[in-house]
Amino acid sequence: MTIQFKKVNKRFDQKVIFDDLNLLIQEGERVLFQGPSGMGKTTLFNLFLGFEKVDSGEILFNGKLLDYSVIRDLRQKVAYVPQIIDLGQGLVGEVIEELMSFQANAGLTTWQEQLPLLLKQFLLGLDILNKKFPTLSGGEKQRIALIIAILLQRKIFILDEPTAALDTALKQKVIQYFSERKDTTLLIISHDMEWQQLDRIKTLNLAK
């Protein structure tokens, strides 16, 4: 598995976000993206996930140009935790069930057994499943999104500020979890310094 950005240019109106950006991420790498707000960290993820288009340049996934079929394949291989977490209006349990019912997730047969264990691991009670998603606190939403990402059993994690709303103890729990997942590729945007404790982590600063 490789992710490659080749001479990627992207601007919004007049503001240049990326000017000939080159980037190569190999399987199993752990990359922490840093840099002040507005430097295009989230845009980088959006381009990779196919939510935005490059102005010029190429993005390659496993050496293949991101076209329709590659994007579809990629979206079935990544677990994404967005910065703004909106899972709709329903009950948390129903929302998770619906996401797990997508065709792409049909192979997941053990998520129902794993869910209570993960809730416990991240200090959430089972009762949260019967709460409406919008009523959750920021920290609860963040942990639910992380749990869903883990339930998907994918090998590439794309995490956009995944611990911003968590207290120190919880941040440690999340980082602890990922430090044990040595089989995964991690792309993380975070202002939390704690992520730097992760061994083998590479910090990339997008500020020029």
């Binding site: 959006n46 996930l49 939510f51 579809r72 979206r75 079935q76 291989k77 990544v78 994404y80 967005p82 703004i84 977490i85 909106d86 899972l87 709709g88 996401l99 997508f102 065709q103 792409a104 997730n105 998907l152 794309i158």
Partner: peptide, 21 residues
């Protein structure tokens, strides 16, 4: 509600699965 929509797409949902709500 594009954040919710993109989130569903990011899971590999088909267009119609993602658009369902």
């Amino acid at each position: 509600e594009k954040h919710q929509y993109f989130y569903r797409l990011s899971m590999g949902a088909t267009k119609h699965e993602a658009l369902r709500p």
